[in-house]
Simulated scan of single mutants.
Amino acid sequence: MSYVGPAWILYALGWFLFVVCPIATAVVAVLAWRRPTRVLTVLAVALILVTLVVAAILPEGAPAVVVAITTVAALLIATAGGSPVVRLLLDRTTFDEREGVHGGIVVGERELLRGGEVIGLLERLAVAGAIIAGFPEALAVIIAIKGVGRFTELDNGAVRERFIVGTLGSWIWAAAAAGLVLLSRS
């Protein structure tokens, strides 16, 4: 396709934004993960939405170097950026539970759902990687491993709620990040 005049400028601006936005989103996502604040989390969400819109309106597939940059940025966004987003979601749904010293919640005398952040990081990396690689069957394996691993802890309503909200938040975030790569290829 030939671009001349103003159309060329819009085309170049679109690809420039598509390279800069995923990098900016990745930087903000890592900052939000390392220094959690609501402002950084909302900024990461806004940046990924802008990047998805830009990717959706670009007229053709990205050059290979742009896809490569986007893939690295998307994996970083999915992995690190999901933690503050999930924390924000959990803060909106957690009621009377006390947080334990290992990141879980205390129910009675037991701390349940320990290690949730580390599991979430690995889960989002696996989900985004499976989507980017075009291997959706892996998603069934990921959710099965997580469900089996947490099965004995899910007998309490608060624990189930936290598990479901955290898992869905993680997966939606990882899928959005992976969507950047899929849109850049089309």
Score class of each variant (00 low, 15 high):
A29F: 02
T51N: 13
L125T: 14
T79Q: 07
L89N: 02
I145V: 15
S170D: 05
A80W: 09
A178D: 13
T94F: 03
V127N: 04
E123Y: 11
D155Y: 13
R87K: 13
F163W: 09
A12S: 10
V54D: 12
E117T: 15
G82N: 01
V4S: 15
F16D: 10
E123A: 10
L17Q: 09
F151M: 08
V72S: 00
L52E: 03
S83D: 12
P84G: 02
T70Q: 10
L168M: 10
A78L: 11
V65P: 05
C21K: 00
F16G: 15
A126R: 00
A12I: 11
V181G: 06
R92S: 05
L40T: 02
G82H: 01
V50N: 00
M1V: 13
F95Q: 13
V67L: 01
V45G: 11
E99L: 14
A32R: 03
A46N: 04
L90C: 09
I164N: 03
V20M: 15
G147A: 03
P6A: 14
R87M: 08
L125D: 08
A130S: 13
W8R: 15
V27F: 12
E117L: 11
G5K: 04
A32Q: 05
I119R: 02
G157C: 02
L121Q: 03
A176H: 02
F95S: 13
A62V: 09
V181H: 07
T70A: 11
R124V: 04
